[in-house]
Computed example of a mutant assay.
Amino acid sequence: MAAKLPPFPGSTGRRDWTTALDAIKKLLNNGDDTVQVFRIMRALNVGSTESGYARLLGTEEGGRIAREQAELAERFSDRTWVDSFAPGTVGAAYRDFLDSTGYSADGLVAVSREGNANVEIDHPYAWFGRRTRDMHDIWHVLTGYKADESLGEAALVAFSYAQVGGAGWAFIGSAAALKSLRITGSTLFARAVIEGYQRGKAAKWLAGEDYLKLMHEPLGAARKRLGLTEPVMYKRAQEELGEEMASYLSQQREEAAEPERLAA
């Protein structure tokens, strides 16, 4: 059983539904507005960072990982390090992810800082929050959920809720699934989101992994070890809904200096 730790200093322990409702309205109008995702997380994920950090300390490797406090974004932004991974590894798949999407670890960090003065403070909880943020793109790689479509992001949101808790994840996933029923006239999108939650519940706790080691594992072996099943409904929804419907929450852009992330 994980230890019980005190709350984040200065936190109220109360969810801010006013902010969450404002943010979800903006997010559903523009799925590229990732800033709203972080607003929702801060408003609703009360206690999830503390409980996640406590759970980490209760794992075999967690004490060492917490003591070392590796900043994953710094490593994931080091292109020389990223280029060093052998073909077929998780790290190589992450490299392909960066090259195919145009995303970067630095880009996600920049978005997370908007309106959040606490993201970079020197505190174990803040470090674990950054760690959770920086694992997101690796989870895209591990789960097989595409990052540049609304369907893949919504499914990963549901997966994340099953893995790390936090009402914010559930709120975003549920809202995206409900809107999809009206927009697509099909239950496939929603069923893929539900499958994401089920896959998250069935998998090993990914937040406790040593990512600096995991990146060197063969991708297939890592998925098997972590209990990551095939996203059957997700692939079916992709195929039957088509690319346009899979990304129905996104605004189209003719030009962009760096592709923005699809939030849900």
Rank of each mutant, 00 (worst) to 15 (best):
M1W: 10
A3V: 15
P9K: 05
T12P: 10
G13A: 10
R14S: 14
D16G: 07
D16V: 09
W17P: 00
T18Q: 14
T19E: 10
L21E: 14
A23I: 11
G31E: 07
T34F: 13
V37F: 14
R39L: 11
I40F: 12
R42H: 12
S48G: 01
T49M: 09
A54Y: 13
L57A: 10
L57K: 10
G62S: 04
G63Q: 09
G63W: 02
A70N: 08
L72G: 02
D78P: 08
R79S: 12
V82C: 07
D83N: 12
D83Q: 11
S84Q: 03
P87L: 06
G88L: 01
T89Y: 05
T89S: 14
V90R: 01
R95G: 01
D96P: 00
L98T: 15
Y103G: 01
A105N: 09
G107F: 02
V109C: 02
A110T: 06
A110D: 13
S112E: 12
N118V: 07
N118Y: 12
E120N: 13
D122N: 10
A126T: 12
F128I: 04
F128L: 01
G129E: 09
R130Q: 13
T132N: 11
D134Y: 01
D137H: 06
D137M: 00
I138V: 15
A147R: 15
E149C: 14
S150W: 02
F159E: 00
S160I: 00
Y161Q: 04
Q163Y: 01
G165C: 07
G166I: 07
A167H: 12
A167V: 07
G168W: 01
W169T: 05
W169K: 09
I172F: 01
A177I: 13
S186P: 03
S186W: 08
F189V: 09
A190F: 08
A190P: 06
I194S: 14
G200A: 03
W205G: 00
G208F: 03
L212T: 13
H216R: 04
P218L: 04
G220R: 06
K224T: 11
V232A: 12
E239A: 15
M245T: 10
M245F: 07
L249Y: 08
Q252E: 10
R261A: 07
A264T: 02
